[in-house]
Design a protein around this nucleic acid. Structure first.
Lengths: 337, 337
DNA sequence: TAAATTTGCTCAAACGATTGAGCTATATAA
DNA sequence: TTATATAGCTCAATCGTTTGAGCAAATTTA
């Protein structure tokens, strides 16, 4: 039997209003007598009453729910991010709806409409594609949106991301400093801002070292598959690159697989620098040098911004770039000239 | 501006009822004229109307939402599982609420109440602890619950799991066949059914091989930390085990870390068999031999059962055990006597 | 003792959708 | 011409809460 305020009202003889006020802890404010309060609480406890949140939501126009929209939860980077966001939200008594857009803008559009329909109080999204209009529209309608990892340039939309340009530069420079010249950049989704920034960082670093002739960028997707296939091709090309800079952990895994299958050794035959930190990277042989992103910090900041935004009337436009961290391991060989 | 049936009603001049019927595709059934239909659809499109699902939920007593309750989303095993469930639910136009109980029964209890309050249509849960009463109660109240991975023995609650006993036997036998005798079992949460079954499998296999004197079970948690610490202790013990059977991927990672730190080589100094498949396991050196679980299949079956249960009035009591898969790699050394 | 205040509660509208019943005008049948 | 059927809509209740307004009785103040 489903208990409601009404059933309790019938059994205790008090009005629905009184019951509601007692159960939502407002008995003091509305001068409900102590004896009434006790009776109601007792009966509610006895029959295991729990409020119908849907009805509360409808009435208060608040769902205590946030929407989390990710391009690919299977990707450990986003999985970790999502996991942190869920936990943080939970601490504030918010529930999370997760949607995976699978890097499809069509799915993304649908998912956003779903979240709006479901009256979420706010959205954290790592967007795919390069069209900010829908996000701007949503934000304008006073539904807070915080972008994470990926963002759109030239919009006021708040975001939290890594300084990917710096990451691109640092990763590339490490290879250059170790004497590499034929450094290939294996990129991910070309529309994603982080990818673009990393690539720009790579290009600038190469140019700064006078290596513009060696600039070579391949790939188009943040998948293991992409890393694997492009590396296969690279390894068959002449001249073979001496180093690969893979722009995500997934791409890195694919590259490593291809390198192994070719019977080559990292770093003796080819050096690898990857992007994204990941506990597994240290367990590979050799451990992989990488540009780590502060995922947990990003997630925490994003949810903090979101809650600030939910709490206040005015829109927030904070845009944060956190520093990446170069994690040096053993996948880069020092070339002797 | 938030559009509702009422605002469209005002602008088109038709009643809320008519608008509702047109927009929910029931114009035929309720004999709404074609011209009316067109006008309404046009206006709804123009003003970007999307229904307030909360109101629909309240009225229809259906949320098209499922609750997914996992003990630890940070664990790649559950992350993958969750990811698959979300996608499958999405295909059926269901939205997913994810909650992480963090292996705490208190959290689990709260989370379940949250899900009930939120009127989810069904729940998929990898439970923690060993008390099925709350789940049974929920199920009895006609809210479908499907257990995944972990389950409770002696209850009618439907579940999908791996044949963990078989996994325990197979993993152990592989080591025995390779001449190992001092095989230690490094277990996870002791209350979890899969853990118990795996341990029983280990014990039975050891006994069957006449190795009852070598049975040794340590650990108590499915964490990297646990794997790491227990292995540290094991490596310092005398006599040192010749093989470790770690009962999850996380424990395995911790064990590997400890082994590396001790300057030992797998499999030369010590052999390792782990549980759970994971793409990373193949990239470690050496690739790790493991007992893989059919995660995707489990997830898909669970959601299928859930939808069957949601669709019908009567409770379902299917209990499925899928076979594990022994994935032989290079982390087991053949002992010569 | 009358007026004012406080206490302790209830009424009823509202949130935005769905849905069975009902109503009017027109078309068809008798 | 009158009864009946049908087309094309609207009314109003309902889901389970919350909340501003209001009301009677008890208490305090003047």
């Amino acid at each position: 039997m489903k208990e409601t305020l009404s059933t309790i009202s019938q059994r205790t003889g008090f009005s629905i209003t009184t019951i509601s006020r007692v159960l939502s802890g407002k008995s003091r404010q509305y001068r409900i007598s102590e004896s009434t309060r006790k009776k109601i609480l007792e009966e509610a406890g006895r029959c295991n009453y729990s409020p119908n949140i849907i009805a509360q939501n409808l009435r208060t126009n608040k769902t205590n729910t946030i929407g989390i929209l990710m391009p690919s939860i299977a990707n450990p980077f986003f999985a970790e991010m999502t996991s942190v966001i869920i936990s943080e939200a939970n601490i504030k008594h918010y529930t999370s709806i997760i949607i995976d857009s699978q890097e499809s803008e069509t799915n993304q559009r649908k998912s956003l409409l779903t979240l709006i329909s479901r009256q979420v109080d706010g959205i954290i999204v790592a967007p795919c594609g390069s069209d900010p209009t829908l996000f701007e529209e949503i934000s304008r309608q006073n539904l807070p949106v915080i972008l994470i990892d990926r963002f759109f340039e030239g919009t006021g939309l708040p975001y939290v991301t890594t300084n990917n340009y710096l990451g691109g530069v640092e990763g590339t420079n490490l290879l250059i400093k170790n004497g590499h010249r034929k450094i290939v950049c294996l990129q991910g989704a070309t529309t994603s801002t982080p990818n673009k920034k990393r690539v720009t960082g790579y290009i600038d670093a190469m140019k700064a070292a006078g290596l513009e002739d060696h600039i070579r960028i391949v790939g188009n997707d943040f998948s293991i598959q992409n890393g694997y296939l492009e590396t296969k091709i690279l390894l068959g090309s002449d001249p073979r690159p001496s180093a690969i800079f893979t722009l995500s952990n997934t791409i890195g895994m694919g590259a490593i697989k291809a390198i192994r299958e070719a019977g080559l050794k990292i770093p003796d035959d080819i050096s690898v620098v990857s992007f994204d930190n990941n506990v597994y990277m240290d367990y590979l042989t050799p451990p992989i040098t990488r540009v780590g992103q502060p995922v947990e910090e990003m997630a925490k900041l994003a949810i903090r911004l979101l809650f600030e935004s939910i709490g206040s009337e005015k829109r927030i436009s904070t845009q944060l770039e956190l520093s990446p961290e170069l994690i040096s391991r053993e996948s880069v060989r020092t070339e002797t000239i």
